[in-house]
Write a protein that binds this DNA or RNA. Structure first.
Lengths: 331, 331
DNA sequence: TTGAAAGCGCTAACAT
DNA sequence: ATGTTAGCGCTTTCAA
């Protein structure tokens, strides 16, 4: 940095202030400094900066590795978080989910200035650990008790409710909900339940016949689920599916059963955007806006790092996008 | 650190040497220091250490975000890399695939001591950039010209060859290969081709009739592929599938066509372990040992960071695991 | 086997 | 609007 200062004919601190923007610098001076920086190919040393400023310019990101996580969605979050962090000139350090001691160590050593925790469970053991840390944290997911915590999550209730409303507006009157397999429902995570509740509440409010079932991601399971539903609802004409993995099998099951989509049966999926789009018959869907959620999580975390004491819970909604699997009832 | 030194009645440098192990310390001294460290809850400052030692104790990891990547496998690599790095007391910083400037900046600022590049393409534009950096890099994947580079990859040829040998040992004599969809084949990545070649070479060496096709991940496509193959090979009795996404549809297609697995048709999948295991009829498979590859990549990178000048290419093989989809021909 | 002390390359308070 | 300078908390050479 002193080379740059010399080349630009200014003091060391001026270079520093040009870099940080924490002081107003006259245009010509800034110009000479920036020119010198480029000419010398100068790049500030991260360690020195961290030492002097007590800021690592780095966020810790806890990613889940459990076998039943949807890594496609996880990676979308990760990408969004990295991009958003970069906009603040921050880097992202990987922390593994299981490892509560990891975040403690990195926070204590000053390697990270804040923590983003994905895949938060109802009673997540990491939450008390996080609370004891010297750095702020933002949760992606909604624990049971979110008192005083900063949380962001997808609004699953809104999603399935929106799906129901869409089916209603198309004239559908016997609708069913196909949710995650039991495995996921019995997990310590509450979004599956929130999704189901949005559907049920919506159906009750609309005063239509409805039923809810679970489904494993296999052709046989899909056919069985479909049969069950049609047994309960002989005139089934609408379906909301919150089960990404079962989607293709469900479609195949309908085709095999001679059910025409969207005419006879209209289906709304709650699933990642790319999956909805990639299908041979693209799904009308409400998609998790992972990008947006990741960006908001980083924004919240940055605000807390800058000192804002804003614990808050934010549920992010998403619009329904009509594609090929829904259509109005034909008279 | 000086607090620790005082509490232990030693000098500051002794504490440092206890921490780094770069000097022999007498047992009682070490003991007092370690006790003091624990009592004071001391944790060394990463920035200061990086500044003084010119080591960030951090690896950069470039993860791919293209829509056609298998994020499950990616996450396995990521997890293995983080775990392996931790064994060296190293952290992992996320770099996005697209961003060649990212690795330049992080390397120049001393934020990372080495780079792990996933999903390397035939003529990857990042390779020349990496070569110009001040830090070493290890590629996961095999570019066209790997001269002077450190690379690790799964041995796809060995995998499909092993699959063929297994089918041969079971008495199968008309075998087919189902590979990735065209989309992936036309990509700038060569593993799909290596997988196909392993199959073809193996079949030729064994002197049996064989055919190779591609397949999209849909039921219709799977049924079409199966029909094509049976047209060419009327007595088809063995299948090697290197197409994870199409696997469930292929199985459904066989069932619908009245083909019994494994008796009439034995199938070997080249796919991630968890997918092979999770199927209702678990696949006999050769699996990408993502854990092992990730670990080896980190080992190689650490060796180069420590100064070893060992550019080398390593292909990691994997054993075939027999499950429910292969069995001997019945006389 | 241990200690003393000179940096590592920045930031930010204090000057001017 | 810019300059001076005292650290930030370690590592490592040089000495003992």
């Amino acid at each position: 940095m002193s080379d740059v200062a010399e080349a630009a004919g200014v003091s060391l601190s001026t270079v520093s202030y040009v870099l940080s923007g924490k002081r107003t610098i006259s245009a010509p001076t800034r110009d000479r400094v920036e020119r010198a920086i480029r000419k010398l190919g100068f790049s500030p040393n991260a360690g020195a900066r961290a030492l002097a400023s007590r800021r690592a310019q780095t966020l810790g990101l806890m990613v889940p590795f459990s076998p039943d996580t949807d890594f496609g969605v996880v990676m979308q979050f990760v990408g969004a978080a990295v991009t958003a962090a970069r906009a603040y000139d921050y880097n992202v350090l990987l922390l593994t989910h299981e490892d509560g001691s990891g975040m403690q160590r990195e926070a204590a050593s000053g390697s990270i200035d804040g923590i983003l925790m994905m895949d938060v469970e109802n009673d997540d053991p990491r939450i008390p650990i996080l609370a004891g840390l010297s750095v702020p944290g933002v949760l992606i997911g909604l624990p049971n008790d979110s008192q005083g915590l900063s949380c962001v999550d997808f609004d699953f209730m809104q999603a399935t409710r929106t799906a129901v409303n869409h089916l209603m507006s198309l004239g559908r009157r016997q609708i069913a909900f196909i949710g995650s397999p039991e495995q996921a429902l019995t997990r310590r995570v509450n979004y599956a339940e929130r999704a189901r509740r949005g559907f049920t509440d919506g159906a009750i409010d609309a005063g239509v016949r409805h039923v809810e079932v679970a489904c494993d991601p296999e052709l046989d399971a899909a056919e069985a689920a479909l049969a069950d539903i049609r047994h309960a609802l002989p005139h089934l004409d609408g379906l909301v599916v919150h089960n990404e993995a079962a989607l293709p099998f469900l479609h195949a099951a309908c085709v095999r059963a001679g059910i025409s989509i969207p005419k006879q049966l209209s289906i709304v999926a709650v699933c990642p955007e790319n999956i909805a789009q990639a299908a041979a018959q693209p799904w009308t869907s409400v998609s998790i806006p992972a990008d947006q959620i990741g960006r908001i999580a980083v924004d919240m975390l940055m605000a807390r790092i800058e000192g804002a004491p804003l614990p808050e819970q934010r549920l992010i909604g998403s619009p329904l996008v009509q594609r090929a699997t829904t259509a109005p009832v034909e008279s």
